[in-house]
Simulated scan of single mutants.
Amino acid sequence: MVHLKPLKRSNPQDAEVPDKYYAKAVGNGVTDLHRLAHLIANQSTVRKADCLAVLQALQHNISDELGQGRIVKLGDFGTFQVGVRSNGVDTEEEVSQNLVKSAHLNFRPGRDFQSLLKTLSYKLVG
């Protein structure tokens, strides 16, 4: 169940418009690599230490591949890709790496996660 809280926001394009409230998804705890390794070990014949080693190697290799500019596809899980935000310039010739303001990760969920997103349930929390 996804927890929601009300969030009051103003309209940045029109300060005269009254503020509105929106639903904002909030975290309900954290699951780290150790917890994932524990869960996987309980669902298989693989020991927690082995699961943790594989998950840490996966994390390391995804990071390395993204650092090389590669798109990382993890089957039905989804796809990771580096994206950037940059300043705009008038001509194509002016584009350079110096325009990059920041980098971020894009995640495109696979089919299973897309299906999950369509069937989520929600709970308003105070």
Score class of each variant (00 low, 15 high):
98 N>R: 15
123 K>S: 11
48 K>A: 07
14 D>W: 00
82 V>N: 08
88 G>H: 05
64 D>F: 06
126 G>F: 13
60 H>P: 00
23 A>D: 02
54 V>R: 01
109 P>R: 03
104 H>G: 02
124 L>I: 15
25 A>D: 01
115 S>M: 14
61 N>C: 11
75 G>M: 03
44 S>L: 03
36 L>A: 01
23 A>S: 07
35 R>W: 06
42 N>V: 02
1 M>I: 14
43 Q>C: 07
56 Q>L: 08
106 N>K: 13
50 D>T: 05
21 Y>V: 14
81 Q>T: 13
2 V>K: 06
119 T>Q: 14
118 K>S: 14
100 V>P: 06
100 V>F: 07
92 E>N: 15
67 G>T: 07
67 G>E: 01
66 L>V: 04
115 S>V: 09
59 Q>L: 10
52 L>Y: 00
55 L>V: 03
12 P>Q: 05
48 K>H: 06
35 R>E: 11
69 G>W: 03
125 V>D: 14
108 R>T: 14
49 A>I: 07
67 G>R: 04
115 S>I: 11
84 V>M: 15
26 V>C: 03
84 V>A: 15
94 E>Y: 06
95 V>S: 04
36 L>V: 10
19 D>Q: 15
4 L>S: 04
92 E>I: 15
92 E>M: 11
7 L>W: 10
125 V>P: 12
120 L>G: 00
36 L>Y: 01
44 S>N: 00
38 H>F: 09
37 A>V: 05
120 L>A: 00
43 Q>W: 02
65 E>M: 09
117 L>N: 10
114 Q>M: 13
38 H>E: 12
125 V>T: 15
93 E>Q: 13
120 L>Q: 00
84 V>N: 14
93 E>K: 08
55 L>E: 06
106 N>M: 09
16 E>G: 13
64 D>Y: 03
122 Y>R: 06
70 R>S: 00
112 D>H: 13
1 M>G: 12
112 D>C: 12
26 V>K: 04
109 P>N: 05
70 R>I: 00
76 D>L: 04
33 L>N: 12
52 L>W: 07
102 S>P: 04
79 T>H: 07
52 L>D: 03
2 V>L: 13
46 V>H: 05
34 H>Q: 14
97 Q>A: 13
101 K>A: 12
89 V>K: 04
32 D>L: 06
97 Q>H: 11
10 S>D: 14
